[in-house]
Design a binder for these strands. Structure first.
Lengths: 391, 391
DNA sequence: TCCTTTTGTTAAGGATCCTAACTTGGTCCC
DNA sequence: GGGACCAAGTTAGGATCCTTAACAAAAGGA
């Protein structure tokens, strides 16, 4: 509790701590002495009280160097790793292309990258207390099994957690990447201070992470926020004589249904743009579409607006079920807030009275990695406190 | 804490309590003496130990009569009220038709009914510690304002909470009815013991309540679970040349979109059945449709199956965003599990890999009322403990 | 009748945190 | 520059809470 107060307030004198925590001065003094002996707290200097007239205060602060953590982002194309101290301050960072073709190789590469990052930052591996790995797929909190990781071959195999754990030898959590990105935005980005918000990742796939009261909302099987699986309508209709309908029948795959991921992810943006008449040759990726739209291409702008309207449906679904205060848009597609946000908000107004604030990610590609680091730091703080306090 | 242990275990001796709570025998004795003096705990007898050979144990139990609560269900057609003790055991119950046409009259009627139920149960009003009122609409935890209560004229007016509070003079919460139904199912019905489940209310409208770890999940503005507002697809499509599609265009209102409530609530069932050819004269309510289906009417069965398929979409949306372990179906339409569950489950298998268990409500029409009572009892237990413990 | 077993009470001790008074080290002002 | 003043930190003593250990009381069985 004292540590939490110290971390929140930074360098603080013991008298000040006594005031903010409600404890008495003697209690704070003895407890802090214990924490200092355990290496969790450090004198940070002695400040001659900028204003006051009394005796100079000795300042203490939680020592972020009491332990270090590693965050790893296992993406389809990149492996990213960062080392950070207990405050979550990044002290080392390294990305490599993900060339591994098997899950085993990926585990090895990830572990090697983690150790390399720690070494580069001048850390001995024994100082690393906890590691958090983010990857696509659903990780069941109970079984440690990764499921639905369609993009990573073999990554869903069981025993993977144990292998990673053995390679690293630190505390370990494996979590869904969208969930970690949400934590990252909560800790450092657009979601700071929000009581309930959702991070909507739109890129090569679609996913969401939900943070409620600062904690990840994971669902009954760890699959909360897997809105890529949200089935698209139309609803089943009666066969036989129906009521006359003047509305034009919609065309395209959405009329047939399918998971929402297929309708809004990067590939869908490309397909959409091409179907509206953009040339196949110069329209290879979603990035091309957004670039063309920014250059003023009317067709591309139309495709972007259509994508925005589809995303509005995703946001509306989140709003109807969760009622978040805020939705943060991220991922390769979602980051294009300059083009997407305005039409998305307009469309949302027509869809539902429940309209959360919608903004774009503040962390971009680093959201997952920083979320992993933030979560690892949190876990490490508890763990370091527990172990050091016994001794 | 001792009280919680007592309530969980029922009548218990002090020695037994010391064992289960981890406290020492003297501590339990003195604490229990204090609770007894405060009137929160009572000797329930002395059992000569059915089996053991030792001294007879004096049994204690939490006194449920230390306070009473009222639960009220303000529905469009009925006002229901129940009085219960701190255990949530109902000691009085009364329903009246809701004839009030203005919010003011409804407040008056509800308060009168509450007092009548208490009197009938032989309670003095001063014994009533807390009241919980369930009604349609979203109640913002911050402002106490009820919003979106489309079915109750004037109920959304501000100041309503304060008027009700003044009329009753007890602790008061006003909560969404679907949320309370979820709490009811958690406390007494199909959701018992579930870590995360959703109650899906399908009747004259559509709503859901979410209970996570025994606590209501209310969302950022108290609107979590308002899936009646879930917009229906189809997704917006590109104008211009689209990819060829062989799928037949769906017909009916769902092709035009709209909130999900319009597609699955009782009125929609009637419209659906009629559109499939059921006679208007004998198809007045959803109940008629289900009755006909049970009698073997093929058209009605078709309509029911179609409704089940639509509900499967609602369940799939819940699953994709929340990932509940369990979905409990309730309300005038939802209660027909014998007809709905099988096709719903079949359809769900085609829609999504995330398939929660789906069952029907165990409490039926009483879910909201019992949920209100359960929540009121919980609030009252804390309140009674706090106030009596000071004195 | 006495022994065993379990309940509940009494007595003593320790952990934790508090209040109150005091010491220390500093700024401010004459 | 020396004392007044002020806030930081320490020391001493005490209250509260809970624990362990031993004991007294009550019941069943030999």
């Amino acid at each position: 509790m004292l540590l939490d107060a110290l971390r929140a307030a930074g360098s603080t004198s013991r008298a000040e701590l006594a005031r903010t925590t409600g404890l008495s001065k003697p209690t704070v003094s003895t407890a802090l002495a214990g924490l200092e002996r355990a290496g969790l707290v450090r004198r940070t200097g002695e400040v001659s009280k900028g204003q006051g007239r009394g005796r100079a205060a000795v300042l203490y602060a939680a020592d972020p160097a009491a332990g270090y953590v590693i965050g790893v982002d296992v993406g389809r194309e990149w492996l990213r790793a960062a080392a950070a101290d207990l405050d979550g301050t990044v002290v080392g960072r390294r990305d490599t292309p993900n060339t591994a073709r098997t899950a085993g190789a990926m585990v090895r590469d990830a572990a090697r990258l983690a150790r390399a990052v720690a070494a580069e930052a001048g850390l001995d591996w024994s100082q690393v207390v906890h590691t958090v790995v983010g990857s696509p797929g659903v990780t069941d909190p109970g079984t440690h099994r990764v499921r639905y990781a369609v993009n990573l071959p073999g990554w869903g195999r069981s025993g993977l957690f144990d292998r990673l754990h053995a390679e690293l030898g630190t505390g370990l959590d494996v979590l869904n990447d969208a969930n970690l990105a949400a934590l990252g935005e909560y800790a450092l980005g657009a979601g700071q201070g929000s009581r309930l918000f959702a991070y909507l990742w739109v890129g090569t796939g679609l996913g969401a992470g939900v943070v409620a009261d600062g904690r990840l909302f994971r669902g009954g099987h760890g699959a909360a926020g897997e809105i890529g699986y949200l089935p698209m309508f139309p609803l089943p209709q009666a066969a036989g004589p129906g009521p006359a309908t003047g509305a034009p029948a919609p065309v395209g795959f959405s009329a047939r249904g399918g998971p929402m991921e297929d309708a809004v992810s990067a590939d869908a943006v490309v397909a959409l743009a091409r179907s509206m008449g953009m040339p196949e040759a110069t329209t290879r990726t979603a990035k091309d579409v957004f670039a063309a739209a920014r250059a003023g291409d009317a067709t591309a702008l139309g495709a972007v607006e259509c994508e925005a309207a589809r995303l509005a449906h995703a946001v509306a679904a989140l709003a109807a079920v969760l009622d978040p205060e805020l939705v943060v848009l991220g991922g390769g597609v979602g980051r294009n807030g300059d083009l997407l946000l305005a039409p998305l908000r307009t469309c949302l107004r027509e869809l539902t009275p429940l309209r959360p604030r919608v903004v774009t990610s503040a962390l971009g590609d680093d959201a997952v990695l920083l979320g992993a680091v933030a979560r690892a730091a949190e876990a490490a703080r508890e763990r370091v406190f527990d172990t050091r306090h016994d001794a």
